[in-house]
Design a protein around this nucleic acid. Structure first.
Lengths: 192, 192
DNA sequence: TTCTTCAATTGACAATTGTCACAAAATTTA
DNA sequence: TAAATTTTGTGACAATTGTCAATTGAAGAA
């Protein structure tokens, strides 16, 4: 059960976790393999779970006039979900797709609620994970408000270099809101 | 105590509030008047409180190379804070300034923690307020990722028309990330 | 390996937006 | 009220970015 141990280690970074609280949750975890290109969540489907990524990489995107707009890259040893769907209990407007062969541990909204009732630790975990997502969105909004494409790309380079290494240019371009061509030119400019 | 009753009504929309839980909190509330142009939070200062705006309007901005960048407008009958500072307990990187003469009710981080320990209702309130902030940031990131200045402005017009009525053009321009001149031209274009 | 397919780059040109300068309008102050 | 200050609007031009088309490069399949 290496996946679940890793999940536990991840949670321990967020809040120091007593054995009992984690033990309560073990029967609720579900380990899944998601092949490259496959979907964890699709539009119209309720996202009733939070997902710990043990291995792999995902992107979140939505369709705007038929064009895919990337809004997030989620790498291993972190948590992903379609939070808007999860929080509001409404169908997702976005897709979560594996960019690499991945292994995840998921915990359903229903089971998380049960855990929160049984143990205050899980209530705190939920609070802290929500805060983490808040901070992530704050950073994303900040970087999107940078004026030039160059600045946006440099921000990624500084703060999320792993993303640039593992994700294709076209997806990064969509993420920072410029055309692939523009991003390509920025990169060649930076190389000099 | 009209301000505090209004705050209670606001919280009731978020979670139905028993009299006891709210009663616990009453001694912790602090009512303040903030004059137009004055600051609720400034850079470098820890933002150790959440603030219910009973009357008035605020903007949140940060300085980028000496230029003010607006990131949020907070109107009456809602809650504001420098959440990044509040969550991480670090000095704020942003300013919260009153755009109109305002009256607020504030609750310190310290007292909120006390309330959370005394009553699970307040723990839930904190969770729900954090989720609300998450959804707001999600929407902001979405609107910032729209390509053209026209689209960004139309998004505001559709979803936050009150902002456009109450906030000056220069501040809105900074918020959506275009120059005042461009926004001015967009407006004259829409008038036709 | 070679072929096939998809991703990334580059050029040319058009569209959008920013910058600067100044005029007009609105708001504040005396 | 008039004067001063701030905000908004507009023209001219430069810089940035998008779009389309063609080329180059890289990764996977036979």
């Amino acid at each position: 059960m290496g996946e679940i141990d890793n999940f536990r280690n991840y949670l321990n970074q967020v809040i120091s976790m007593d054995g009992h609280s984690f033990g309560l949750a073990k029967p609720y975890f579900q380990v899944e393999k998601i092949g490259k290109g496959d979907y964890l969540v699709t539009e119209g489907q309720k996202c009733n779970k939070i997902v710990y990524i043990n291995k792999g990489l995902f992107r979140i995107f939505y369709l705007k006039d038929g064009v895919e707009i990337n809004t997030c890259f989620c790498k291993d040893k972190s948590i992903t979900s379609s939070f808007k769907s999860f929080i509001n209990q409404v169908p997702s407007t976005e897709y979560i797709q594996a960019l690499e062969n991945s292994v995840v541990v998921s915990l359903s909204s229903e089971n998380l609620s049960k855990l929160q009732n049984e143990s205050p630790t899980w209530q705190t975990i939920r609070q802290l994970l929500t805060e983490k997502e808040c901070l992530r969105l704050y950073d994303r909004a900040t970087s999107l408000s940078f004026e030039s494409a160059l600045e946006k790309y440099k921000y990624l380079l500084n703060y999320h270099p792993e993303i640039i290494q593992r994700v294709s240019i076209q997806h990064i371009a969509s993420y920072i809101g410029v055309s692939r061509e523009t991003l390509s030119r920025i990169r060649s400019q930076i190389r000099d």
